[in-house]
Design a protein around this nucleic acid. Structure first.
Lengths: 286, 286
DNA sequence: TTGCTCCTCACGTCACGTGAGGTGGC
DNA sequence: TTGCTCCTCACGTCACGTGAGGTGGC
């Protein structure tokens, strides 16, 4: 006594939901549901082999709801899949980690907004004193990296530690202050590249990730910044702008990546103490 | 005495920048620059007609920088173009408006995160008392709309005003409390649809945006909510979940859009006072 | 038998990234 | 002449939206 083919599909007495109904109840679009099926993120509990109809159980609504909320947080589908692999508390923790990243980025953006609004309003800015200096050709040891904004501080710290310990092991003397050269934007979406550099005298072999190269002699314009400036993104950007403006006003041309020179004893000084330079190498216009 | 063809392009003595150099200085990718050119957002000041080479002036770096920052704020290119059409203060205001939208969405998301984490941790929730009632078939006047989350409150308010004034002008008596039926998700990316409804007796002609229809008789399960609940998105979502869970536990099936019934005198009550119901119409499982 | 619902392509959107394949300038 | 830089397609990415064209179930 087989069921007639036209009977509505059921599991243990509970009727299965067609995609339209499941879409309505979950508030996920049919297109989204088909995509989640294809990706294995939310598969119908039954697919009719003869016509491909998708049938969902109503208890799948819980997973659907969680996916929906995570998507509202703009979490990528791949990451959602990972979160939903986890148990209760671990899943909650994974969400918290994700959200912390988002909060960090949001904070950054607030600084950018402040900066932008000041730029558009053409605010009088605290005068920056622009200095220039001649930098001789130097042999440097450097570590190149591509990192996004949240990791930048730890990347710089670790790289400097590695550079100094390599120099130390080789019995080689560092010269002057370490600096970081920026070859590209570093933010939540762009990962540089950037280069953490220490000049030295003597001879050192390059290692797996340490490059030895000559930084050519050049002029550079710079501003001396207090340690606390790194805490204020808008002010930091204004300082960059001030140096760039000086180059433009004085008909100079930036030809090497701009850099931050960390001359201060970072851990033992206050926010008001001078700690680093923002420097733009330049040539006179060709 | 024309210049030889191979001379570097210049304007009034200042050399023009090729795309690679402009890309380096602006920290915008070449691909992005070509796109902005195609869209008219940032056009090179000169394009060599013979080979299509793009040449930029260095003073275009300011516009490039602003575009870059606005993109870091995830502003769409179209909107960036609109902002850059504006003058200083107006542009600053446009950025502030945009940012306010982002802040609003961010706030919403914080509520979602709280809710989600509680869901994953399977927190004991304040018990909601689920009630049921029989709702008779009613004639209703309604306004359908598609709005995103930020506009939802004003849309509901305006629609209710319009409905009540139309009823008033027609000398028709409203019956019971107005309600809002949700046919789809309403958030920053999804715009419902939703329907603002008032039941009435008598006869009323439909107008441009007012639909007259019969809401069928049904059972519904509901929770009574204090006014202040709307301020706490996580608690609001838990309340929805509580009703949905009741339906599931009692083997009921939601067949009509869920709704919020606004019976309270909204402007003259406190946050603790009961103000609205969250209701799910249901049938017994077929 | 008529609609309504479901299905699977296929193409569009947004802001690019990433080659492929070809020309041009020093 | 050799590379290096520039160019224009064209396709990929991400998470869908929006038809087109066709089948199936009540």
């Amino acid at each position: 006594m087989s069921m007639p083919e036209t009977a509505p599909k059921t599991v243990v007495g509970e009727p299965l939901l067609l995609i339209r109904e499941f879409s309505r109840l979950s508030r996920l679009s049919q297109k989204a549901l088909r995509l989640y099926d294809a990706l294995g993120l939310l598969e119908p509990s039954l697919i009719d082999p003869s016509n491909g109809y998708r049938y969902y159980r109503s208890d799948q609504l819980q997973r659907a709801s969680r996916i929906s909320v995570l998507r509202q947080l703009e979490m990528p589908l791949q990451r959602i899949a990972e979160v939903l692999e986890l148990e209760g508390t671990a899943a909650a923790a994974a969400v918290a980690v994700y959200w912390h990243e988002i909060e960090t980025q949001h904070h950054e953006k607030r600084g950018l907004v402040q900066y932008l609004i000041q730029v558009f309003e053409d605010k009088e800015l605290p005068m920056f004193e622009i200095l220039t200096r001649q930098v001789p050709a130097q042999k440097i040891a450097s570590i190149n990296g591509r990192v996004f904004q949240p990791q930048i501080a730890s990347f710089i710290g670790q790289s400097m530690n590695q550079l100094y310990s390599s120099l130390g092991q080789a019995g080689v003397t560092p010269v002057g202050a370490p600096f970081v050269a920026y070859y590209g934007k570093v933010d939540a979406d762009s990962d540089g590249p950037l280069e953490v550099c220490v000049a030295f005298t003597g001879s050192l072999e390059p290692s797996e990730n340490i490059v030895i190269r000559i930084e050519p002699a050049h002029q550079e314009a710079y501003v001396v910044c207090p340690k606390g400036l790194v805490k204020s993104l808008p002010d930091l950007l204004h300082a960059y702008d001030a140096v760039a403006k000086w180059l433009h006003d004085n008909n100079k041309h930036n030809h090497l990546p701009c850099r931050e020179v960390y001359f201060g004893d970072w851990d033992n000084i206050g926010d008001q103490d001078p700690a680093f330079d923002i420097a733009y190498p330049y040539t006179d216009q060709a």
